[in-house]
Design a protein around this nucleic acid. Structure first.
Lengths: 128, 128
DNA sequence: ATTAATTTACGAAGTTCTTCGTATTCATAA
DNA sequence: TTATGAATACGAAGAACTTCGTAAATTAAT
């Protein structure tokens, strides 16, 4: 087990998404990115990022006059944790229910079907 | 669109799960079920269920001296909404990413693989 | 060096959620 | 009818999160 205490809030997660996309960024840059979707005060973003630094969700480095923030965890890692929590809390551990549920809601495109079949074929090779 | 404002909190969702399992129940019964996993004060459970009634997450009917609570929405409906929100907020709409992510975390059993293949086969019949 | 502009730090207020203690209500039994 | 026990109603406190205003610090330009 690595660092299993990755529990960003909604706002924190949105900031992480920006950092994953843009790479290490200043508060200003992150705030601008956030504002493309929804107006956020600059100091609001700042505050949350400061809290994220306390929680070690991000690291920051002083570069001249401003800080440069970097996500502490990889996107895949965080999403994996989130999905794992959903599986446990919503589906009581039954991951396949989540898969079926999702496939039921969103009909995969022909291309995605191919993708899926390949993924499944790989599982079949790996004998259980 | 039906009732798309189904946003139970963690605690509320746990109560819904009990109601789905046991069917219409009293606060006492729900509280006992919850306590099997984690101690919860009776009035705590009561309060949350009252709030859920205000939010229309449950309906309640007076039966003599106590109320009988019933989940307002079907389990599938609520879970569908939850999954939909995850897809939007975490995977930016890319449902397949959630599917692949989940399949990556939990290797499906041979039986589940068969199940999956059947599901996919059905999608293939439905031409897009 | 003083000013202006930018960034950070800090504190406080407003929400929502959870938890619990206490008061109230009400059916039932004595 | 009164007392008892069980259930509900209510209020308040505490925690976590979000938001923002203002002060302080710092850099750069005048």
């Amino acid at each position: 087990m690595t660092d299993q205490n990755i529990k960003p809030t909604q706002s924190e997660f949105e900031i992480l998404q920006v950092l994953w996309k843009l790479g290490p960024s200043t508060v200003k840059r992150v705030n601008e990115a956030l504002n493309e979707k929804k107006p956020k005060g600059y100091t609001t973003t700042l505050k949350i990022m400061q809290i994220m630094a306390e929680k070690a969700l991000v690291t920051r480095v002083l570069d001249g006059k401003f800080h440069i923030y970097t996500a502490s965890h990889k996107e895949l890692q965080v999403k994996k944790t989130l999905v794992s929590n959903i599986v446990d809390q919503v589906f009581e551990g039954a991951a396949m229910e989540l898969v079926i549920q999702t496939l039921g809601n969103y009909k995969p495109s022909p291309l995605e079907i191919i993708e899926l079949k390949e993924l499944i074929a790989q599982y079949e090779k790996t004998k259980n």
